[in-house]
């Protein structure tokens, strides 16, 4: 075990995977000599050289498109988009090419590749450095989507993604890059299974479900609830597509009340899907309607950077509503 922060873990995991498998290549803007603007690819260029750590032109379409073409040829590309807010010039590559390649070729061609992108707010970055774009990708059949919330999860999920057979959108909560450190597995084959969430805390009174950076606020809310004598389950989904229906339905059926926390804009976000599935499958077990606490249907605001996010107070208010129902 080594104590590492999130972004160090990304860099070290990439180093391990590049050592293990020479098919793995890293490409993106500033990923080479600079080691990435967040240093998520630090030391890779010095270790593996320009053939395997490729500084690309400033073009997300070129980065993602080339990653697809490399994966088709047998490489295992890990592309970096500097901020998820900048993925849109490459969006067509993900949606029209990567996501549909296996399907449209009847399985003849596949794109095993990872597109890493820092996402989420709370860094005073305004709307173009703060968004949570996961819904676009969840709504695109043929992509897997993962949004790990801790350094250790990031390691396990990144290895699973690189070694998998499908395109993965790998979202990293940038405000946690250096905000917390934890013991990270030093097992070079540490992998977390696709589509499996994790119960961060077990309780009897309410289930709180979240993922990504919002897990931090959700755990703070759970702490505050504990002081009031209310025990909360906290589920970290980790994977958004596929997502862990079994864990969610099992806990909601056991606890009967649920609050869903996501910092993405409210309408049609990931938690809309989770809430609909809960309603379809275990409605009769519920003591109160599922409530969502989320970002708003606005562009991400600059001045109100922190209050836009679903903080502990908004989560606690929703918990009170489902308890009082």
């Amino acid at each position: 075990m080594a104590v590492q922060n999130y972004v160090q873990t990304i860099a070290r995991t990439l180093m391990e995977e590049m050592r293990r498998d020479e098919r793995v290549v890293v490409l993106g803007e500033d990923v080479g000599k600079r080691g990435g603007v967040f240093l998520a690819t630090e030391h890779l260029y010095d270790t593996f050289g320009p053939d395997r750590v490729i500084d690309t032109p400033l073009s997300e379409a070129a980065i993602i498109g080339a990653a697809i073409g490399m994966s088709v040829y047998g490489r295992r590309p890990v592309a970096e988009i500097q901020f998820s807010d900048y993925v849109y010039p490459g969006f067509d590559q993900l949606v029209s090419q990567a996501a549909k390649l296996r399907y449209r070729s009847g399985g003849a061609f596949t794109a095993p590749m990872v597109v890493r992108m820092p996402a989420g707010g709370g860094v005073k970055g305004g709307h173009h450095h703060s968004q949570n774009p996961e819904t676009h990708f969840i709504h695109t059949p043929g992509l897997q989507v993962v949004y790990p919330s801790t350094p250790n999860d990031a390691k396990g999920c990144l290895k699973t993604s690189i070694r998998g057979e499908d395109p993965v959108v790998f979202l990293e909560p940038k405000r946690l890059y250096r905000a917390l450190k934890e013991d990270v597995s030093d097992d070079v084959d540490f992998m977390l299974p696709i589509g499996r969430g994790v119960l961060r805390r077990e309780g009897d009174d309410v289930v709180l479900i979240s993922y990504g950076a919002s897990i931090g606020e959700t755990l703070k809310a759970a702490d505050a609830l504990a002081e009031q004598g209310i025990s909360a389950d906290v589920i970290d989904l980790r994977w958004l597509m596929p997502w862990d229906e079994n864990l969610v339905l099992e806990r909601v059926a056991a606890v009967w009340r649920v609050v869903l926390v996501s910092e993405a804009p409210h309408s049609g976000n990931m938690m809309s899907e989770v809430a609909a599935t809960i309603a379809e499958e275990v409605l009769d077990m519920l003591e109160a309607p599922p409530l969502r606490v989320s970002g708003f249907d606005t562009p991400y605001p600059y001045a109100q950077d922190r209050v836009y996010l679903p903080g502990p107070n908004r989560i606690l208010h929703a918990v009170q509503q489902v308890l009082d129902y």
Binding site: G65, G69, P77, D92, R104
Partner: peptide, 23 residues
Amino acid sequence: FTVASPIASHVPVAVGTAIAQKL
């Protein structure tokens, strides 16, 4: 490579394959 309808979307993909060929 399997054709996709969106015009020119295969061009960056082809370049990725060519870079992989070079490597």
